[in-house]
Simulated assay, not measured.
Amino acid sequence: MPQPAYPIIDTHQHLWDPKRLSLPWLKGAGPHLNKRNAIEEYTAAVEGLPIASAIYMEVNAAPDHKLQEAQQVRQLIESGRHVTTAAILSADPGLENFRDFVDPFQMQSWVKGYRQVLHGGSAPKGYCLKARFINNCRHLGSTGKTFDLCPRPAELKDAARLADACPDTRFVLDHCGNVDPKAFFASNDSRRGSAPPNAARWKEDMTELARHPNVFCKISGIIARVPKQWTPDDLRPVVQHCVEAFGDGRVVFGTDWPVCNAGGTARQWIEALQQITSDWSPEAQQRLWSKNAETIYNLA
């Protein structure tokens, strides 16, 4: 299959070296994650692909290693030797010291925004609707930084309420709202397994979230949940609804490497998405692969 005709901005690049950064969650992760996945491994994984630049995505480091993570990423970017040119750092708007951490980065152009994962066990339902969380997300809007949303699929309505409360903050919804693509499989499809029958609710909640013009959708993550035998058509319903809801002007692409390797390589994911979007207009394809990211993340 030919490569995309457009340069790609990977808006979701994870990198880590367990010897340099404390990542407690790695202990329970699969073998493709519980190892060194640094820039050299990423470079090898995307060799031959038209990755023009990449945005580093925080990796949920231990609280006392978040500043160290930021320092390591800054060194990587400033070296100028790799595709990584910007970063989304880890910071929890629900914490009292949130602004103490983010404000020193306010004038750092390589820092485009922040993320606190909301789909793990440490974030209870409704956490993103706490007053401090909302006020700190408003603060990000006032400084021009983004916030990546990564909620559980059943809590997309919370994300909509947060976006409504922070109209001047740009939110980027990760991984198509963390939906399991197997939820769209036919009931008699043996590959479906125990996927929850939440497709209809997910579509409804995504449509509601998309009504907020300050929310953008990242087409990423879904390949990590596919069964061993899969085709691009298995992912098509998810991608199609995201674009129907948000429009081709509010979607961006991300590899979610190396998490994507649970279902397929970065190359397989890109080629699958190319096939899914092959009937889009050239302008819409270019917006997905790079142009929207340039606007959303204020990339030079």
Rank of each mutant, 00 (worst) to 15 (best):
A5N: 13
A5R: 12
I8A: 10
W16V: 00
S22R: 07
P24Y: 13
L26F: 08
G28L: 12
G28W: 13
A29R: 15
G30C: 09
L33Y: 13
N34H: 15
K35G: 03
R36D: 11
I39W: 03
I51M: 08
A52V: 09
S53R: 15
I55E: 03
M57D: 02
M57R: 07
V59Q: 03
K66A: 11
L67G: 09
R74V: 08
Q75R: 14
I77C: 08
E78R: 12
S79R: 12
R81P: 03
V83C: 14
T84Y: 00
L89E: 04
L89Q: 05
S90Q: 15
P93Q: 13
F101Q: 10
F101L: 14
F101P: 01
P104N: 15
S109M: 09
S109C: 09
W110K: 04
V111T: 01
K112H: 09
G113D: 00
Y114M: 00
R115E: 00
R115M: 03
L118P: 00
S122F: 15
K125R: 14
G126T: 10
Y127A: 02
C128R: 01
C128W: 03
R132H: 01
I134E: 04
I134H: 05
N136S: 04
N136P: 00
N136R: 05
P151Q: 02
A165P: 09
P167E: 11
R170L: 13
C176F: 08
N178L: 12
D180V: 06
A183T: 15
A195M: 12
A199E: 02
D205M: 07
T207H: 13
V215T: 12
C217N: 07
G221L: 02
W230S: 01
W230D: 08
T231N: 11
T231Y: 14
P232F: 08
D234W: 11
L235V: 08
V238A: 09
C242E: 04
E244M: 11
F253K: 03
F253R: 05
F253S: 05
Q268I: 05
W269N: 05
E271P: 00
T277I: 07
S278V: 06
S278L: 07
D279T: 15
W280N: 00
P282E: 10
A284Y: 02
Q285S: 04
R287V: 01
R287T: 01
S290C: 12
Y297W: 10
L299P: 04
